[in-house]
Computed example of a mutant assay.
Amino acid sequence: MALAHKIVSEAAIDFYRRRARVARHEQTRSSPPDASYVMELGSHHLLDNALEALESTAPLQANSVRLRHLIDLSYEDVAQRLNITVGAARTNVSLGLKKLATLMDLPGTGEGES
Rank of each mutant, 00 (worst) to 15 (best):
R66D: 08
V65Q: 06
H44K: 07
R90D: 08
M104G: 10
L60M: 08
R17P: 02
G96Q: 00
E111R: 10
S74Y: 06
R81K: 05
L70A: 09
A101S: 15
M1R: 02
D105Q: 11
A4H: 07
V22F: 09
R21Y: 15
K99F: 00
I7H: 12
L106M: 07
V93K: 00
A89V: 09
E52P: 02
Y16H: 02
L54S: 13
L41T: 01
D72I: 14
D14E: 09
L46E: 02
S64K: 11
D105R: 14
M39Y: 14
M104I: 15
L67V: 09
E55Q: 10
K98E: 03
D72S: 13
A23L: 11
N92Y: 10
R29Y: 07
T28C: 05
I7K: 14
N63S: 11
A20K: 12
L97C: 12
I84N: 01
V78K: 06
E52N: 05
S64F: 03
G42H: 04
P33V: 02
L47Q: 10
A101E: 14
G96E: 01
N83E: 05
E76V: 10
S36A: 14
E113K: 10
H44P: 02
S9K: 01
S36Y: 08
R24Q: 12
Q27Y: 05
L97Y: 01
K6P: 08
M104V: 15
L51I: 15
R66A: 07
T57E: 00
L82E: 06
L100I: 13
S74C: 03
G108D: 10
E52R: 06
H45I: 12
A12Q: 12
L3P: 01
T102K: 14
T85I: 05
A88R: 14
V86F: 12
T91Q: 00
V38I: 15
P59A: 04
M104R: 13
S9F: 11
P59V: 04
R24A: 11
R29L: 15
P32T: 07
R29I: 12
L60P: 01
Q27W: 08
V22G: 00
A4D: 06
A35S: 09
G110I: 08
T57D: 00
G87I: 10
L51A: 01
H44W: 14
D48P: 12
L100A: 02
L3I: 05
R68D: 01
H69Y: 15
A58Q: 02
L67E: 10
L103D: 05
L67W: 15
E52W: 06
Q80R: 14
L82G: 00
Y37C: 13
S30M: 06
A53Y: 01
R24I: 04
E113A: 04
P32A: 02
N92I: 06
L3F: 05
A35T: 08
I13W: 12
L46G: 00
L95V: 15
L41R: 03
L41N: 07
A88D: 11
R24W: 04
R68G: 03
V22S: 04
I7M: 14
G108L: 10
R21T: 11
S94P: 01
N49Q: 13
L67R: 13
H5T: 09
A62S: 06
H5Y: 07
I7D: 11
